[in-house]
Structures are given as structure tokens and as C-alpha cells.
Design a protein around this nucleic acid. Structure first.
Lengths: 205, 205
DNA sequence: GTAAATTCTTAATATAGGTTAAGAAATGTG
DNA sequence: CACATTTCTTAACCTATATTAAGAATTTAC
């Protein structure tokens, strides 16, 4: 076994370990359960700008980000991108709509930075719930949190002007502000990059 | 036992029955499980314009609408209402954010029509999951659906102009269009009632 | 390290949607 | 039924944000 192969195995070990820690922080799990979960996921690397998933395909996986950052977005009829979600370290990302309804996705998921993920197929996920009910609880809780956050975003959208939505974003994702292009932030909060630029210029004054 | 009391019991029986049918349509349940679930919920009537929940309180319940229609909404600093959710028959409604984070709610929930609901406390809900894992599955699935719908709404908001968001709403909630005031639809799709009026006038031409 | 590509800024102009106001229609209530 | 309240419509005017365009700054790729 070369050193390189060994380091790879070591690396994969740490990847899964990070997921197990995340699960354990929400629903404490035993060694044995951890062993089973290990078998459920597959490591994957996504270089910057490469896709994990493309619009048109039916989504069949969820991904847990171990390192880097993914994003999901649609492209509208005029060719403009609209970002639905960022997934930094320790977040799950998927196209829930396509996953649940089993119809072709309108979302692309790609990497904003070189990224390492653990991929879990929907069928594996569903089938494990009977064996490890804790995992169903884990995902139930994550989904509740995601829904709460999504609702909050909707309310912000309905009730706040662009400037406050931007300030909100800064409070919420402080690590992202300098890690991703500003045009991505603009897309997420629903304005043009030019207008964001204007808001930021005003703010300095 | 007077006839009136008897009819009330009969009515309550049908209320819970409707919930059991809904659960059964998603995760088939046995008679015994149905019996347990019966004990978990409390019937409540909410006359039109009365509140089920008010901003400021910490949310501790979810409600299943048996008849009528509820809505959740915030009031912004300028006093404008923004509707987050409608809950017609067979829908659950709650303030997921407050329920999950246990902090005071920014949402009001009130009745658009005279409404009958079944109320389930969060603590009951959580505690039953160990006894009836099917119920955790039921709520996991509902929450996934709600998240998918909420994501779709966000995408619509980011990528569609008001006119298309209105048409979308018409397709999605055909029963609501004539059941609730237009200003409520305007609030849900994020425009003023005056502007909705303008869109509708254009459409006729 | 340098050329090419992408992102960011600024500014002039345009527009979707908001605001205000007032009357018409519908609905609720005694 | 009649009066009060709420909702809906129309129209004139206003503003937050979009669009277009062009140059500056930064990042990427060889």
C-alpha cells in the first residue's frame, strides 16, 4: 500500500467521521449505528464550478458538505440565475421538490469552492429508517429547521426592502460574505449585482 | 344525555376521523394506533377573525384544519400584513420557527372562515414518536412536502414578475380564489391589493 | 507573470410596482 | 331592510429597483 493510498483512506475516514459527529450532535448514536451509516454514503469530490446535479435530471441523492461550499439555483427563461440555497460545511443539500415528487428538477447544484461531499441516495435513506429510526428523527429535525429557515426567508422577502435583506444576510452567513462572489449574494437576496453595489456604496458613507 | 350532547360527541368523532384518514393515507395505521392518536388531540372551534395564536407568544401547538380555513401572517413595522401560509381543510399549520427554536413568535394565526381544528401540543407530538414511529414518519413526510413547496415559492418570488406569481397562485389554490378576499391573495404573493386589481383588469382585456 | 476572463463599480435612463385618494361594490350587522 | 364597515377599482403620481453601458479591479489560467 503506497503512502498516497493510505492517506486517501485516512481522508475518507475523516470525512465520514464528520457526518457521524453531526448526526451524533442531534441524535446520539452508538458505534454500531455509526458502522451502518458509514456504509450508506459515498465520498465524492466536486471541483469548483463543476456540477453535482443538473436541471432536467430527476434528483435521487442528498449530499452532506464536509469541506467547501455548494449552491443550488435555477436559471430563468431570461438566463438569469437565482440561488435557492448555499451549503457550507456541515449542511445537507438536495432538490427536495424533485426528490419528493420524483419529477425532473429545475435546480442545478454546483460547487462555489473545491468541495468534498458525502452522497446518500434517497432509496438508501428511506430504507434505513426502519432499521435506525434515529436517522428518521435526525432528518425530521433537519427538515423542520430548514422549513423554519425557509419561512423566515419568505417573510423577509415579503416585508423587507433590499437593503435590510442584505444586512440580514450578512448577520446570517458571516463566513460566506468574503468567501463567495457578491453577485451570488445579490442573486440569493433577489436583487441585481449592480443594485447591491449601490447599497454597499451607500453603506460606507 | 341530551340530543345536543350526543350530536357534539358524534361531531367530535368525525373530526378526529378525518385526521386519522389523512394519516392513514400517508402511513397506514391500525385501529389501536388510531385509538392512541385520538387521545393526543383536542377539538377547537375558531370563529371567523378570531385567533388561534398571536405574535409574542411562544408557539407550543400545531393545528390540523378539519373544516374552514386558517392563515398565518406577520405584521411589519408599517402595519402591513404579510401572509405566510393558508391552511384549508386537511392541512396542518403552526409557527415552525417558534416551535423549533422556542422563542416568541412573530406570526399570528387566525381564521378566514369559521373553522374547526384539532390541536396537538408539541410536547405530545414529540413524546409519541417513540411509541408510534409511524407518526414521526408522517410528520417527516409532511415537513418534506412543506419544504419543497416553500422552496418553490421562493423560486417563484426570485424569478417571476407579479402577474405570473398571481397566475401561479390561481393554478395552485383554485378553491381559495373565490373563498378569501383578494387583498389576502395580494398579501400572499407579495403585492398591494391595488396592484393586483390592476393586473386583473389587464387580464380581462 | 501576463493575457484573458470574470467580477465589481458608477452613472444615466427606464419600469414594475407602490402610494394616495376617492368613489363603487360588496359584505356584515343591528 | 338600512346603515356601517370592509373590500375592490381606477387613476395620477412616486420610488425602489432594473437595465444598459463602459471602465476599473480582481481573479483565473496558461
Amino acid at each position: 500500500m503506497t503512502l498516497c493510498v493510505f492517506l486517501n483512506i485516512l481522508d475518507n475516514f475523516f470525512m465520514v467521521e464528520k457526518l457521524l459527529q453531526h448526526i451524533d450532535s442531534i441524535v446520539p448514536i452508538t458505534e454500531d449505528e455509526g458502522e451502518i451509516i458509514r456504509e450508506l454514503v459515498k465520498e465524492k469530490e466536486i471541483p469548483r464550478k463543476k456540477f453535482l446535479h443538473q436541471a432536467g435530471e430527476v434528483a435521487s441523492n442528498s449530499a452532506f458538505v464536509v469541506e467547501g461550499c455548494l449552491r443550488s439555483y435555477t436559471i430563468d427563461r431570461d438566463g438569469f440565475e437565482h440561488i435557492l440555497q448555499f451549503a457550507p460545511e456541515n449542511w445537507w443539500i438536495s432538490d427536495m421538490h424533485s426528490l419528493v415528487k420524483n419529477n425532473p428538477s429545475e435546480l442545478n447544484i454546483d460547487a462555489l469552492l473545491d468541495t468534498k461531499v458525502l452522497v446518500m441516495s434517497r432509496s438508501c435513506q428511506i430504507s434505513i429508517f426502519d432499521r435506525i429510526p434515529k436517522l428518521e428523527r435526525y432528518f425530521r429535525i433537519l427538515t423542520e429547521n430548514a422549513l423554519a429557515a425557509s419561512n423566515q426567508r419568505t417573510i423577509n422577502y415579503l416585508s423587507l426592502p433590499a437593503k435590510l435583506r442584505y444586512e440580514n444576510f450578512c448577520d446570517m452567513y458571516p463566513t460566506l460574505i468574503h468567501a463567495i462572489p457578491q453577485k451570488s449574494i445579490a442573486s440569493y437576496i433577489g436583487i441585481t449585482p449592480e443594485f447591491l453595489s449601490k447599497l454597499r456604496a451607500e453603506r460606507v458613507k
